[in-house]
Design a binder for these strands. Structure first.
Ligand code: MN
Ligand code: MN
Ligand code: ZN
Ligand code: ZN
Lengths: 135, 135
DNA sequence: ATCTAGTTTATAATCTTTCTAAAGTGAAAA
DNA sequence: TTTTCACTTTAGAAAGATTATAAACTAGAT
């Protein structure tokens, strides 16, 4: 994703393209592959990459704003920290607890043959498959 | 599960059957159906049920001891609190975010037809299916 | 250039969970 | 039974992640 598109992405979500948001968005979205991160890991990487440091509160604010805008999704992973994902399409994950690393699985690469009916008047919103890895 | 079995369960895991442990174990395991809970919800229910209150630290200690002994499992649910489960067999869950309620799905009731290979020298430890519900 | 609502920031506050260390207790040994 | 001591409970402190606060800053409209 190019810088011009990043500005569009921000503006179209009603987010002013501030210096901090553009830097964070560039870091997150100017890459080909999915990026999984926690606020802590993102903060470390941004600190390493950027000359001027961004306040931790701003990183939290920005990540939440991006999530609300639909530019990031949240992945539930065992542990205390919240994981975010630049892949906002429906997909699944491998999880390597040795390295705390998430790996995407395309939705088409998992086919579920049999699934129970949703209980009492409820419907199925989505199905998440989480595959834990070992050595 | 009967009280005598609860004492056996504790002793066989190397846990002294103290007053608090027996009360918590009785509350958790003397029921037919699976029970899903957080430490907070368990604490509230125990406070309501018991005459003498158990310290929050003891509830944390006990729940972890039971988990380590294999009498409880942990379920990863979106949100800040940790969920525990009296069903320690391999199974899946529905999750109703309206009520924050987990519902068990028997492992046999979900059949996965196609699954990707584990990456680079890793193996699959287990597969967790999490079905989010809506109205 | 001015203005203002939106944004950033340092810091405090909150919330869940874990740690600490002192007091209490189960059960083995005497 | 009494003694003993490792294990357990407990209140409160501490930790760690996240959110709230409010003052300073700024993008972009006028
Ligand atoms: Mn988590
Ligand atoms: Mn969670
Ligand atoms: Zn992903
Ligand atoms: Zn369950």
């Amino acid at each position: 994703m190019k810088k011009i598109d990043i500005l569009k992405k921000l503006r179209s979500s009603g987010l002013r393209p501030t210096k901090q948001r553009v830097e964070i968005a560039t870091f997150l979205f100017e890459r080909e592959k999915t990026f999984h991160f926690t606020v802590e890991s993102l903060n470390k990487l941004l600190t390493k990459k950027l000359a001027s440091k961004i306040a931790l509160a701003t990183i939290y604010n920005t990540v939440h704003a991006f999530k609300t805008a639909g530019h990031l999704s949240e992945v539930e992973v065992r542990g205390s920290k919240t994981y975010f994902d630049t892949n906002v399409s429906n997909h699944h994950h491998f999880y390597d607890s040795e390295t705390s690393e998430l790996i995407d699985i395309n939705a088409k690469d998992i086919i579920i043959q049999k699934i129970p009916k949703a209980p009492n008047g409820k419907k199925i919103k989505n199905v998440e498959v989480f595959i834990n890895l070992k050595n």
